[in-house]
Amino acid sequence: MTSSHGRRLLHLAAAVDQQTVYDADSYVAPARLAERGGLDFVTLDDTFARPGPDALSVLSRVAPATSRVGLVPTVTTTHTEPFHVQAAVATLDWVSRGRAGWRLDVSTTEGEARLFGRRNAAPADALWQEAGEVADVAAKLWDSWEDDAEIRDVATGRFIDRDKLHHVDFTGSAFSVKGPSIVPRPPQGHPVRVVDATEGHTRRTAARYADVALVRAVGPAQLAAVRDQLRASASAFGRDPDDLRVLASLVVDLGGGEYAAEPGHGGGGPRQSPRGPLYRGGPVDLAELITAWYTDGVADGFHLTPAEPRRDLERLVNGTVALLQHRGLFRTFYPGSTLREHLGLARPANQYAVAGGAS
């Protein structure tokens, strides 16, 4: 293992998307399977551009049926109300007892804009600037309740210490929020923020606000270049770059076994496809690819999207993950209970409590 990782273990996550599946219970089994493999988190995509169930609501249903795996829905920041978005994500963190994340995304098409009828479509770079503002105000609203703001004193009838609630008074380019939140500070302080940083216009937001950046890359050199850029930008924003986890994002097709692997590093791939970088091969070769990229220091981990949801997730957990565990590269149990603990990220201090000189 290279010095760039220190003693930190590999991070692994998987998508649990299922096209045209509307029954929330159908998402419980793959989430439990991911949890059995010790994965850091599962993602569930969402977009206004196609029909489908609300990802955050589905994972709120999955939360009580799981106990450790992180739950990261896509929640779009365009056309939605930032105050409601942060409250919903905070609620998922409470429902899951500290396992919530939030994958930020934007809506760029006129068709999506017409669904809401509030404003026209806007360029992607402007929408990602707005997404950064939403991420910023969300953190402020999560902090608008100090951790001990709730008194719950039955004798006096006092539920809240109002001195420990704070107005955020935030004005962005397209919205303003007064606050405080209607939801007490989440168990993690700040639920984990995830951004796909593949495209250039997303990277500023990722470097400044994301805890996890996903990068769709077909090779280690491409990934390393983006990771270096993200870490440098994070440092320029005053962040410790070691607080940003950069995960390679791949579609994995494990249906053909090891013999399906095309010539190349790690057995066979990835190769560019309409869905993004696609690895096609077997669980053993996939473990080789993950090991090579990780030990070379180009990725902190991997976010894997099964090409065939049930089949490939089972082969990933029972084959690839088991091999990585055997090699001592991946955990065999969860050392903590929150998603931040899985990722090795500290619970953020409350910016208002710190500003007020409180502990």
Rank of each mutant, 00 (worst) to 15 (best):
T2E: 02
H11K: 15
L12F: 10
Q19M: 12
Q19H: 14
D23E: 10
D40L: 03
V42N: 04
A49Q: 08
P51L: 07
D54M: 00
L56C: 01
R61W: 10
V69G: 03
V72M: 05
T80N: 11
P82L: 01
P82A: 02
Q86S: 05
A90P: 01
S96E: 06
S96F: 09
V106R: 02
S107C: 00
E112Q: 00
E112G: 03
R119T: 09
A131E: 01
E133C: 08
W142E: 08
S144F: 08
E150S: 12
T156N: 11
G157A: 06
D161K: 13
D163N: 04
K164D: 03
F175W: 15
G179T: 12
P180L: 10
V183I: 13
P191F: 15
R193G: 14
R203C: 14
A206E: 06
V215W: 12
A221E: 06
A224V: 11
A225R: 11
L230N: 13
L230Q: 13
L230P: 13
S235D: 03
A236T: 13
L244H: 10
L244K: 11
V252F: 02
G256W: 13
G257C: 06
H265L: 15
H265T: 15
P274N: 12
P277R: 15
P283W: 11
L289F: 07
T291D: 03
D296E: 11
A299C: 05
F302N: 00
H303E: 00
H303L: 07
R310H: 04
T320S: 04
A322V: 06
L324D: 01
F333N: 09
F333V: 04
P335H: 14
H342R: 07
L343S: 04
P348M: 03
Q351W: 11
Y352F: 15
Y352S: 05
A358F: 08
